[in-house]
Design a protein around this nucleic acid. Structure first.
Lengths: 205, 205
DNA sequence: ACCTGAACACCGTTCAAGT
DNA sequence: ACCTGAACACCGTTCAAGT
């Protein structure tokens, strides 16, 4: 009933409201369900009204991606670089697998050049250096870890025929194993990996 | 001029012709350019004519993916399992990066359940067993290697802003490095990796 | 069996106009 | 500045009809 609105009447739309609706639409309707027109429908607005708050669908998606990375946990310094890297990547993996519909978007764009992505990259680099990786191998190791994490999340979140999803626990364990393999290789390939202390238990939280 | 054709007149379309056109369209027009209508245009045919040779767009894409895997090189037995794995994965990586437009399709579907995919999986498993990997770690290691290879190809083939592509040589070297890391971790995590002989040079071809 | 014409239910985006 | 109506140039797919 309140749907009737002539040209000039405001709908009270904000940029944040559009992003929220996009997130909802993505989790409810999946990747294919995220269309500008569906978004407009959800907001009870004409499709082209969105373009007052968002530059394009591409721009909208880009913001969605970087927003997600904001919730990735950064490790405390206590437990050494390998444990730290394990924590960042595992947290990234958890965040990605918790939002299965966003992962394909990540793969399609594959970059994520936003502020949060940059921040996480810097954290990773610092940890790699402390793990004894030097020179150009740092950037390379970072890229490898990111590739692997996004790729793993993609495989975990998309079931073969969208029937039964892979159990979360099992996929986490599998990712942890592959991460250990990768970190073993990265740290081990270096002549003198500065291992500060023998591996001990994970931090309390 | 020969374009005029009434209902009932045949166009001489075959299933293989459709697939070939799809491949061309993909490399010329990119992922977004691969539409049923564009395909029909290329074949000088009405859009719905394609459905006499292909079940759907999805089915068409699925065939395209498995077709590509047919050209992945399988290693000779000579050089040991680690060299063999390196060869299969590198060949897969090369095939994928040689067809940059197909890679996003791989990521979207992420499965590739075709006959060729199965064949390669079996080859990999045999090599992993010979490398000393046992039990459930075999399937896990296979998955990890596939994830990593497709993910790496995705990153290598999609430039940040579609400006300059990453040089092939450099991306190959980078992939080789990460593969070495991964294989070191996989083989190293096992108590007794059956290394048949010390690493020697690659086979002649 | 293979193809066309026409249609259905969609897309993203732009442009002019209204307040 | 924010929104609507209408339109443009597209999609994948189906259905009936023709030979």
């Amino acid at each position: 009933m309140t749907k009737a609105r002539g040209p000039g009447q405001r709908a009270g739309l904000t940029r944040e409201a559009v992003l929220t609706a996009a997130r909802e639409q993505l989790t409810e309707g999946g990747l294919d369900g995220l269309t500008m027109r569906a978004l407009a429908r959800r907001l009870a607005v004409a499709p082209n009204a969105l373009y007052s708050h968002v530059q394009s669908k591409t721009g909208l998606v880009d913001e969605l991606l970087d927003e997600l990375l904001a919730s990735v946990r950064t490790p405390d310094d206590a437990d050494g670089p390998i444990a730290g890297l394990t924590e960042v990547m595992s947290s990234t993996y958890d965040v990605l697998t918790a939002h299965p519909d966003v992962v394909p978007l990540y793969l399609a764009r594959q970059g994520a050049r936003g502020a949060n992505a940059v921040r996480l990259g810097e954290v990773m680099d610092a940890l790699l250096v402390r793990a004894g990786v030097t020179g150009p191998a740092v950037a390379e190791a970072r890229r490898v870890l990111i590739i692997h994490t996004i790729g793993s999340a993609a495989f975990a979140t998309s079931a073969p025929d969208a029937d039964r999803a892979i159990p979360t626990k099992e996929s986490q364990r599998s990712f942890g194993q592959s991460l250990r393999w990768l970190l073993t290789g990265i740290a081990g390939s270096d002549p003198a990996p500065t291992r500060e202390r023998p591996p001990k238990r994970r931090s309390v939280r």
